[in-house]
Design a protein around this nucleic acid. Structure first.
Lengths: 103, 103
DNA sequence: CATAAATATCTAGATTTCCAGAAATATCGA
DNA sequence: TCGATATTTCTGGAAATCTAGATATTTATG
């Protein structure tokens, strides 16, 4: 995962409502949860939640699949793993020479 | 770590410049790096970087200590560990009954 | 003390995000 | 087809963030 993508994901997770929704899905595991249930847990207006979920989907942090009239949301584990790996990769490996400063 | 704090940290990391700076410090390890060197790497105006670093400090993601006229920045590993733990804790543990819906 | 170096603060305009009500869309069941 | 349910899209104003130049602050050095 490259910088821009990781930053995008972290930024989307950096909102209390979206983070709470994501956490709920992490706990739910591979089965996921329908939007309705997420709303029941978080207790926020429909349109607001829909907006936030769209953000998570756009970032690739969660996926959606229709089941009847419900949309089941699931964590995209590959994406979140990529983000976490990006954050801490090469920890303490040292930093190469900085670009030339002014003389 | 509780939700609001974690969201704050993730949000601060969710900006390309701050994420790049943080990554640099992760690689640098416990020795840290002075602001000047971070700027040399990122190549952005001084005031802009200073602003972003202040954000990271305020979130508790990095610490600063003066050494001569330089400010050495270091990752606060305890904080970042708390954030990562918060993100994936209780993965797949299941979700308890949702709050009552309307009858 | 005067100067230079490293960094923070002030400022203000441009851009982006946030929120929730209202309306639209899609799917199911009778 | 009609009605109910689940969800998205539209909308627009309020609030927050981003950027970088100019200036100020702090510390070391000669």
């Amino acid at each position: 995962m490259e910088l821009e993508r990781a930053a995008k994901c972290l930024s989307e997770l950096g909102h209390p409502v979206r983070l709470a929704a994501f956490r709920l899905l992490v706990r739910a595991g591979p089965e996921g949860l329908p939007v309705k249930q997420i709303q029941a847990h978080l207790g926020i207006p429909q349109s607001t939640l829909s907006h936030h979920i769209a953000h998570l989907v756009a970032a690739g942090l969660i996926t959606q699949s229709r089941q009847g009239r419900m949309l089941i949301c699931r964590v995209d584990y590959e994406t979140i793993r990529g983000v976490l790996d990006f954050l801490m990769r090469d920890c303490c490996a040292g930093v190469v020479l900085p670009p030339e400063g002014p003389p």
